[in-house]
Design a protein around this nucleic acid. Structure first.
Lengths: 126, 126
DNA sequence: TATATAATTCAATGATGATTGAATTACTTT
DNA sequence: AAAGTAATTCAATCATCATTGAATTATATA
């Protein structure tokens, strides 16, 4: 009997979010945004990155739904980015339900030299 | 005055962990290990992946310190992988201190059309 | 000792995606 | 209308890394 695998339904989504956030420069950008930094120019100041590159990363973050963007009401040349709080909540929810240490189950015994009847003194191998 | 940026000291480390976990197949493997699946063969069963590819991903997870490995005491051909609980704790710690919604600060006002004196009715843009 | 098994290593390939420089867009100011 | 500014888009390049198939290692069994 093959393993009956039922990954959390949000596993795919979690993987996509992690991919977006795993890029070092994007994580730095996200970090600055957590601290209230919000426009391309200012991010460029802080990170020494070309504005078009920042635009690229902001777009990836935005397409992942992690951040929002809007134009300045008085001078519409300026864009303000901000962290999407709801997405952040969902992200944290998905993360903690996946990486919860309590989820860890003891060893499955469907393989190895002893099949289902593995000797107990091997159980410490967990 | 440029931004004085002080990302959490564990930001680099967090980025590395995220990179490792952001790979969809690795996340699936990690998921199976949370459920107690532990050897190459069994992972292959569940994931339809070539054993050498699984070995590759297990190595990446292991080199990141996320999982441990040991040989079966009775038949040393079999390897048993398991999640490193301490690493998991550190991972969760790094994650939650970084992605804590409470960390989010209001907009910084060092750029934009109004400098430090931006009008308050724009503040809802947060 | 020879063969089989679990897993890994190696070398090559391919795809993805970050980065770069040069336009281009959107908007404001003169 | 012309020039300037913030930001984005575009096309091309480059690096990284997952994937694949073919050895190779380590161990056990016949």
């Amino acid at each position: 009997m093959p393993n009956t695998i039922s990954p959390p339904t949000n596993l795919q989504r979690l993987a996509e979010w992690l991919k977006v956030l795993a890029e070092p420069n994007r994580l730095l950008i996200f970090n600055l945004m957590m601290e209230g930094v919000q426009c391309n120019c200012e991010l460029g100041d802080g990170l020494q990155m070309a504005p078009n590159l920042i635009s690229h990363h902001l777009r990836v973050l935005r397409e992942a739904g992690l951040i929002d963007v809007e134009r300045d009401a008085l001078d519409a040349r300026w864009m303000y980015y901000s962290i999407n709080l709801q997405a952040l909540e969902e992200l944290n929810q998905a993360w903690s339900s996946f990486f919860d240490p309590q989820r860890i189950k003891p060893r499955r015994l469907t393989c190895g030299p002893h099949g289902e009847f593995i000797r107990l003194d091997l159980e410490e191998a967990r």
